[in-house]
């Protein structure tokens, strides 16, 4: 995912990226030496608490702000360069449009900014209006659009000219459940074309259905990254034991991360149900007496909250 094995030129390459916002006498370090390499055709969930640096990170990749330190390259080109911008589509958290323009006129305007010919503009506009189910509202002024419709229009604009990288900042804001499902379908279609999608969202349950690759940002740093790590903590296996056994069990389960331990048992992080027989048999073979086993499957939201709390405590 993040190794760039598939492509010689990674879609995103960030090296030691730092961003400090200065305002008067105060300085806020929004990102702190973040390095990341993303190859093509992946969907990555960017998650973290408010103020973690998610929007800053997306803004830096999109070239909207400058890094204080480090370098960012998009498809091999420096961020903010014309070539980098040609490769990406971006949806800000609260997309703003010219209120007097209709959805069609807005799309045609942005398509023109891509340098497309008149015929290509018409073709792209019709394709995206249909794909995002905006045909019905195509000739209405954008000023009267609901937040959900604005998000769909923003997504249509971001998809103009088939970008190789799509950056989405809270794209499901204001979308109804049907809109969320459609968004998911569109993003999976985009991924199938070989494009990379980075999606920042607070509605973590939605991300879980899109991807297993996450970037956890906390206080401007990447806390966890890579699907194996995230997946490795997707389940909590609660093992109940006879008194005195938990310590022995913990020593035996060195390849599993201990999460809780008490007199009556312990909880370890496992990848999923497939790990349960392995854990149980290794304990039984060592003579540990088990009185009960329960797998508490965690979704990404619970995992994130736990990682966040653990990170906060450390």
């Amino acid at each position: 995912m993040n190794g760039g094995e598939k492509d010689a030129v990674p879609v995103i390459e960030c090296r030691e990226v730092t961003k400090v916002y200065r305002g008067g006498k105060t300085a806020v370090r929004a990102l702190d030496r973040v390095s990341l390499r993303v190859s093509g055709g992946t969907i990555i969930g960017l998650i973290g608490p408010n103020g973690a640096g998610k929007t800053t990170f997306l803004s830096l990749i999109a070239g909207l702000i400058f890094p204080t330190g480090g370098t960012i390259r998009v498809c091999g080109h420096p961020a903010r360069s014309l070539e980098a911008r040609r490769s990406l589509g971006y949806i800000p958290e609260s997309p703003a449009f010219l209120a007097r323009y209709s959805a069609r006129a807005m799309l045609e305007y942005h398509a023109a900014l891509h340098g497309l010919s008149r015929a290509a503009i018409r073709e792209e506009t019709d394709r995206l209006l249909a794909q995002l189910r905006l045909e019905e509202y195509a000739d209405r002024a954008v000023g009267g659009f609901s937040l959900g419709m604005r998000q769909r229009l923003a997504l249509a604009i971001a998809l103009l000219d088939r970008p190789r990288l799509l950056l989405l900042d809270e794209p499901s804001n204001g979308l109804d459940p049907l809109g969320v499902i459609e968004l998911r379908q569109v993003l999976l279609e985009v991924q199938r074309t070989g494009a990379t999608v980075i999606i920042s969202s607070h509605r973590l349950g939605e991300l879980e259905r899109l991807t297993s690759d996450y970037v956890f940002l906390h206080q401007g740093r990447i806390v966890e990254f890579a699907s194996e790590l995230a997946a490795g903590q997707m389940g909590r296996l609660r093992i109940e034991l006879l008194p005195g056994s938990p310590l022995v069990a913990e020593e035996l389960l060195t390849s599993y991360r201990p999460l809780e331990m008490s007199e009556a048992g312990l909880v370890v992080g496992v990848g999923g149900v497939q790990d349960v027989p392995r854990v149980v048999s290794s304990l039984v073979q060592a003579g540990v007496q088990i009185t009960g086993v329960a797998l508490e499957a965690q979704d990404i939201e619970q995992t994130f909250v736990r990682l966040y709390q653990e990170g906060d405590g450390s």
Partner: peptide, 10 residues
């Protein structure tokens, strides 16, 4: 915030 949409265009 409209510029955040415009400035990412090529």
């Amino acid at each position: 915030g409209r510029m955040r949409l415009l400035a990412t265009e090529p």
